[in-house]
């Protein structure tokens, strides 16, 4: 007891502990032991995380719930500045934009006149093909809370979670097209794996020809279109939409446009403007029930199995 008090008094006075003393030795060895333990714990956590243990996913979701309001509050001035900048830009180019919008309105009016006829034709063709009606989904609008994007992981935190009916695997879209998929769900936040992430694999088709392929993220600005037969011609600018195969995403969501066609790779540029991503819509397309009913940790494995199956089917 006396020794402890003396040590405490010495510490308060800021007097250094003698070099080579027993206390100093104990302190050094404790420190070294603690470092070794932390290194081992970090290694173990990396391994546990790789097998997608639900506990790490819950921890991530819980922490995101806790800090989302703070991050959102700090991000608010940046959003305000961006809006101000947009408004300033719009004022500067308002005449040009106005003319552009007038042309767009005219073009849409013409398209609108054709719409009833096209809808009717589509309904009749679908009836002949026995394809059924398009699946309709329930939408939840959410704000982008935090940008957890980085060079190796491309993801976002959005401000809607299980309390708002969000589930893993749901499609996340905005006005431009497909943004990504929900991979982690907290009470009031969810993590979105962007279509450009290296782990993202989306069954797609070319909108014009219906040719099926698999769109893979690269962590870069563009995605790679895989499993396209070599004798098929794909031209730059072609629209890529989701094919709906696999039952996770609905059919027909626009994803990107073919950017370049090389000898070894077809690269696709996403339609989403990442710099303007403030609001997203999370869509629950109740297609097969697979996503909602899947037990924890099985979604990615299930997707992997289906992907492997598709690879085998792809000519």
């Amino acid at each position: 007891m006396f020794r402890k008090q003396r040590r405490e008094a010495r510490r308060r006075r800021g007097r250094p502990i003698r070099q080579g003393s027993l206390l100093e030795d104990v302190r050094v060895w404790t420190r070294r032991f603690a470092v070794v333990v932390m290194v081992l714990v970090a290694g173990a956590l990396i391994v546990i995380d790789r097998v997608e243990a639900p506990v790490t996913r819950d921890m991530r979701a819980g922490l995101a719930d806790l800090f989302a309001p703070v991050i959102a509050a700090v991000s608010a001035p940046f959003h305000a500045a961006a809006e101000w900048f947009d408004a300033f830009q719009s004022n500067a180019t308002v005449r040009e934009r106005n003319a552009e919008l007038q042309r767009e309105i005219e073009r849409l009016r013409v398209a609108l006149q054709q719409l009833p006829a096209l809808e009717d034709e589509n309904r009749r063709l679908r009836a002949i093909a026995n394809a059924g009606n398009r699946i309709k989904g329930r939408h939840v609008t959410a704000t982008v809370v935090a940008d957890t994007d980085g060079p190796y992981v491309r993801s976002l935190l959005v401000g809607a979670g299980s309390a708002e009916g969000i589930g893993r695997g749901m499609a996340v879209i905005n006005g431009d097209g497909l943004v990504g998929r929900i991979v982690e769900v907290g009470s009031h936040t969810s993590r979105v794996l962007l279509v450009t992430d290296l782990n993202s694999r989306i069954p797609v088709q070319l909108a014009a020809s219906g040719l099926r392929a698999l769109l893979a993220g690269t962590n870069g600005r563009r995605m790679r279109l895989n499993y396209v037969p070599p004798n098929v011609s794909v031209s730059p600018g072609a629209l890529i939409v989701t094919s709906g195969h696999g039952g996770v995403l609905p059919r027909g969501l626009p994803v990107g446009r073919v950017d370049s066609v090389g000898r070894h790779a077809i690269l696709v540029r996403p339609l989403v403007n990442w710099g303007r991503l403030t609001f997203v819509r999370i869509v629950n397309y109740s297609t097969t029930g697979l996503v909602q009913d899947a037990p924890e940790g099985t979604l990615r494995r299930e997707a992997g199995r289906r992907e492997a199956g598709r690879r085998a089917e792809t000519p």
Partner: peptide, 16 residues
Amino acid sequence: LAGLIDVPAAEYSRIA
């Protein structure tokens, strides 16, 4: 936390 701020600028997040 500052590294997570959502700055609405293209490609900011990748080079933050």
